[in-house]
Design a protein around this nucleic acid. Structure first.
Lengths: 180, 180, 180, 180
DNA sequence: CATGAATGAGGATTCATTCAT
DNA sequence: GATGAATGAATCCTCATTCAT
């Protein structure tokens, strides 16, 4: 086996650091390259498209989400697990502006990302099922719809104040309870 | 006073039609000109900036919203009025992709737009007050926050299915009720 | 005979006033029209080209120059006449930034301008002849060269301080005396 | 350290050649690109602004001027040195139409240009001092004024015949002598 | 592999001029 | 004759992407 290219690793780190500093909406590989002190070509070699870079940026966040997914889905207390899930997802999406795009995107360029997303959704699905049975969530709300609602809440917080997050989450939770 | 030129009216209409066909997020005055079959300069004469055009596009929608605002705020039944308001706003925002930006923008280039926004918000504020008193809405929810939540729901519907609209609106309404 | 169009006269005046307020280097008929509160078409009707407008602007200055030319060329004191000529020309060129272009231009769109230029040059030529005979000016300096030198001095004053004018004119006068 | 790319050097040369062929007054980076057979972006990479290109164009001329400045300021014969200076400056400014702008510009984008200008002015100042003491030049003429006068003479030659140069320089020299 | 120079399409904007009203 | 809307060529500049070194 070839030696692990230490410089390649360093380049990757630099690129990710530089990208994180930019707004994910207007991410430019050229600007990233300049900020990272690297050539454009190098950036393109590591990430052939902007989306690939966004994915990579989100990978770390996704890992944290995966951790949450695993631990919350283990909890016996369904309501706590469900809330923990929503809260974690909202928190991470707010922190990582590119995460929403990666979560919603149907085709992932990176296999690891694909795998993480699948496991997260599966775990979430499980918790949602339990929440439905315990009448914490109305029965007709699909996992996809819930995901979209979280994105909506994220959007609402984003165009307003960070302090709105807690209240908006409460509203979401209260809103999706089954009607008596 | 001079009469308004017939060709100017026609150009304006063409521009607005062409603009409506484009995604309001990536609205380009040059593309609009090409689609409208007009010179770039003509478009710039009518609308010096992209935002001016977006505003003009929303003006008609705003008028419809104003109509709703007036009629709903007249209703004796507060709950019906409040729901009518939310439903109307959501519906119109979904129909007119640029409306959200105009509603959220603090500075309007057109005076008419400014006036309409003010009247709509004032009417909405009135209905919200009544809804608070009748315990249809929690007391700590501000008009701004409610506006942002509607934008969030709009976003959620937009990234999902149009059919989600009804359910998501129900969820919003249920979510903002005061907790018992 | 038709009545004299009072509004046409007023338009002309407004155009000239607006044009005077602009830098003659970047004179735009459109901007002039807007500043004058008139339609572009009106401006074009009065002055088909930018140069025509510049000429018109200079016409008044040319008249003043013509006045100087006539009075100075009458003077018995050649030196005083000559200096008066140079001083007047320099002063007027500095006041009217477009004058140099009109003076140097071989083809004049306006007949009156053409006539004035010819009379001015003729008068100047006469004074220069006398100045040569009285050994105030070297014999090999042509009228054209002298004109160019004045333009040069104008340029020198223009890129420096207005206060340089007096000294630079002295230098020119001293410089063109015949060498002993 | 990386070697300088061969193609980059070639591009730079082409750009400078193409620019030299244009009037420096109306220098357009796009036209330069087209004339040089290069992409616009390439030109912008090499010279981000028109002034940067003008500076680069003048750099070579400035070097020649610097050479003259050094050698002339060494001369024991003050008058010869002074004349050599003026003659050289005039000659070079006439050859290089953009030089005047660079000399007069208070802010230089290129450090080398800045340095050369400073050395040239310092050397010229020295010669001027000596010339003042030897009563070749009137005492109240500043280096800045002299510079402007040279620009004026350049202008005068430029709007006339190249053959005027010699005479106009004589006139300048004669004109700035102290009055007896 | 890394580099950054080169590319040129594309977007925004201005402005001289024409022409319908 | 006056008006100003319409025109579109021309200009400036950016940026994603390719490719020579």
């Amino acid at each position: 086996m070839r030696q692990i290219r230490a410089d390649a690793v360093r380049s990757r780190t630099r690129i990710l650091d530089a990208a994180r500093a930019q707004q994910s909406a207007t991410l430019s590989l050229n600007v990233v390259a300049k900020d990272a002190g690297l050539g454009v070509g190098t950036v393109y070699r590591h990430f052939p498209t902007v989306h690939a870079l966004v994915e990579a940026l989100s990978a770390e966040t996704l890992e944290r989400m995966l951790t949450i997914a695993r631990s919350e889905s283990q909890r016996a207390d369904t309501e706590a697990a469900f809330i923990g899930f929503l809260d974690g997802a909202l928190e991470l999406q707010l922190q990582d502006g590119g995460l929403q795009a990666v979560l919603l995107s149907p085709d992932d360029e990176d296999q690891g990302v694909r795998a993480m997303k699948q496991e997260i959704f599966a775990a979430f699905e499980g918790v949602l099922q339990r929440a439905r049975h315990e009448r914490i969530v109305r029965a007709d709300l699909s996992i996809t719809q819930l995901e979209h609602l979280i994105c909506g809440i994220e959007h609402a917080v984003r165009i307003g104040e960070p302090g709105d997050r807690q209240m908006f989450l409460e509203i979401l939770l209260a809103g999706i309870r089954p009607t008596v």
